[in-house]
Computed example of a mutant assay.
Amino acid sequence: MSETSRPVLLSIDGPIAEITLNRPDSLNAVNVEMAVALRDVVAELGERKDVRVVLLQGAGRVFMAGGDLNYFRAAEDKRAASDALIQPIHDAVAALSALPQIVVASLHGAVAGAGMSLAMIADLAVAEQGTVFNMAYAKVGNSPDCSGSWSLPRIVGLRKALEIALLSDDLSAEEALRLDLINRVADKGNGGLVAREMAERIAAMSPAAMANIKSLMRRSLDTSLEDQLDAEAKAFADTACTRDFSEALDAFFERRKPEFTGS
């Protein structure tokens, strides 16, 4: 298989890694091969100390139009087909959420079904004008996967999440921004640029600080105040022992921009 024909592409440019969903002829619909490839790529990035930010994007006209319905239609054993696809893509989602690096989703075209779930599990998201979001699962007679039922009510609240999932209405980029499903709306054709600029700003920060902010925020919704305070105290002390923290203090008092090395 040639590099360009792989279902998921990985490129690394300094501290920023780009994951590209690469089935453009199928609107990046996730099949078993893509699920396995995404799982493996995310696992690889989890071991990379040189990568500080991960950009998640889709090749072609859309980010991701959901699951590969042709795969399910052709399957005689629907349960076995579901298990073969769901397990690796769920492993990938869990690994994305747990990455120490910040994950920024760059969204365009259709962001539907599993694509919307993936977009929501990212830490930050930018969508171009004209992007259309749709949970879509109800339209094909099924229920959410890829963490969609976990992320959506946490972002928009239970009542709105039920409306979005049950009715499967299209949501514009502007409506997604209003609902906090994304962080920025970019001009048409500039989504990748805006997401890259965001990634570069994060990559210039202390990696330990970024990782601890992500970890603390993600655990906070399922943690008691007392446990969260303990976690904050440990994370702060651990980060205070890094060279980057000392560099930040020196830069502050010397009125200059800090240069973080990740140590």
Rank of each mutant, 00 (worst) to 15 (best):
V54L: 09
S82R: 11
Q57F: 00
F72W: 11
L85Q: 00
G60H: 09
N70H: 12
Y71V: 00
A81K: 04
A65T: 00
I89Q: 06
E76N: 13
A75E: 07
R61A: 15
A65V: 02
A65S: 12
A65L: 10
A74C: 07
V62D: 06
N70L: 08
I89V: 12
R79G: 00
A59I: 02
A84W: 01
A81F: 05
F72K: 03
A80L: 09
N70E: 13
A65W: 01
D77R: 14
R73F: 14
N70R: 15
L85D: 01
Q57A: 15
L85F: 10
A59K: 08
G58V: 09
L56E: 03
F63R: 05
Y71A: 01
S82W: 11
G67P: 01
L56R: 01
D68V: 07
P88G: 11
D77V: 14
A80F: 03
A81Q: 04
D77S: 13
L85P: 01
I89G: 03
I89M: 13
A59E: 15
K78V: 11
L55R: 14
D83S: 09
L85K: 06
V54D: 04
F72Q: 02
M64H: 06
N70W: 06
V62E: 02
A80P: 07
P88M: 05
F63D: 00
V62Y: 00
A84M: 04
K78C: 02
L55F: 07
A59Q: 14
A80S: 15
A74L: 13
M64Q: 03
D83R: 08
L56Q: 02
A80H: 09
A74W: 05
D77Q: 13
A59T: 07
G67V: 12
Q57K: 15
K78L: 11
A74V: 06
D68T: 08
F72V: 08
P88E: 02
H90N: 15
D83M: 10
L55P: 04
N70V: 05
P88K: 07
Q87C: 06
Q57N: 13
L85I: 12
S82V: 03
E76H: 11
V62Q: 03
V54G: 06
L69P: 00
D77F: 14
A65R: 05
L69R: 12
Q87E: 15
L55N: 02
S82H: 11
A74P: 08
G66V: 10
D68W: 02
N70F: 03
D68L: 11
R79Y: 03
A65Q: 03
Q57W: 01
L69D: 14
A65D: 00
L56Y: 01
G58I: 10
R61V: 07
A65K: 04
Y71H: 10
D83E: 14
R61Q: 08
G58R: 12
A59D: 15
S82Y: 13
H90T: 14
G60D: 05
R79L: 09
A84R: 09
